[in-house]
Design a protein around this nucleic acid. Structure first.
Lengths: 152, 152
DNA sequence: CCGATGAGTTGCGGATTGAAACCATTATGC
DNA sequence: GCATAATGGTTTCAATCCGCAACTCATCGG
């Protein structure tokens, strides 16, 4: 197959016109977003990802391959010597709002009152404020005040 | 089983202290968030969910059961007559920021330039602005300027 | 050279999915 | 009244995916 070096034509999208569906086709399985979470928190090596998540190794191999294939992670030689490491690409780092909203939903709904959980803080140790979608004029938005505009 | 009406003790969390992991334990599979997306867009019936997503029926049955068990959807009798319908609970509607950030990531990274896709608009038909996480003082935040504070 | 660590690969049994068929209960056309 | 269809599932069965454990191979520290 000559000339097929660039982005694989691959994807057989679940729903080709919906950005939500496409994103989930790329990161919507049990482990991928946890790997992204850990990469954002400093994990770089195979073993470190495995230790943090407890994922099975063959599955970890597969997910790291897919993430690099989709260019959410890049594999490069570590600065020190010849060990390999996985680092987030720009697209991978851009999943930050997704991981953050998942985290905030979990904090609101998946813990009993008073139950301890980890939390996200900024450089000063101040908790990160909650995300609140708003319209251009600042009014809050939710599922009832928005709608999907179909295309095609 | 008397007195077992309230929340099942159930969950065997992947990572009990991490809100991201708990959220993914509840909605982190290939279909659940697409069902939430469609519920936000007005889907209420078994058949409508099936038609929109193309999910296999037995899986749809299972996911709707789990979503109602976790109280993200509630099943009630439709206003007209005695047909059943599934509606989002407050917790389910609160997933709006999650679905929105997934959508916005997809729009930025999962479509070729110029490729058509659906988009979210407010009541006036104006596109919903992009979510940008910020600290309390308004400075932008990302994975590099935040960290997880562990507990316990 | 020896043992430890990192990064996988392989094999296998069990769980999860998907496609399609089947079923029961209303609705609808004639 | 009867055939037809739609709704909301359940069942069956094959294919796939996942988790676990064992194994490989290369490097590193001493």
């Amino acid at each position: 197959m000559p000339g097929t070096t660039a982005h694989a034509p691959d994807h057989d999208w679940t729903d080709p016109h919906c950005p939500v569906a496409r994103t989930l086709d790329l990161v919507g399985d049990r482990w991928t977003l946890l790997l992204i979470r850990d990469a954002m928190d400093g994990a770089r090596s195979f073993t470190e990802f495995q230790r943090r998540t407890g994922i099975a190794r063959n599955i970890l191999t597969d997910r790291l391959r897919k993430l690099t294939a989709h260019e959410l992670l890049a594999q490069r030689t570590a600065p020190s010597g010849r060990r390999q490491e996985y680092v987030l690409t720009d697209a991978g780092r851009d999943l930050f709002p997704v991981v953050l909203t998942l985290r905030q939903w979990g904090e609101r709904h998946a813990f009993a009152p008073g139950e301890t959980h980890s939390t996200l803080v900024d450089r000063h140790g101040t908790p990160v404020p909650e995300i609140a979608p708003t319209a251009a004029d600042g009014t809050p938005l939710d599922a009832d005040t928005t709608q999907v505009r179909k295309i095609g």
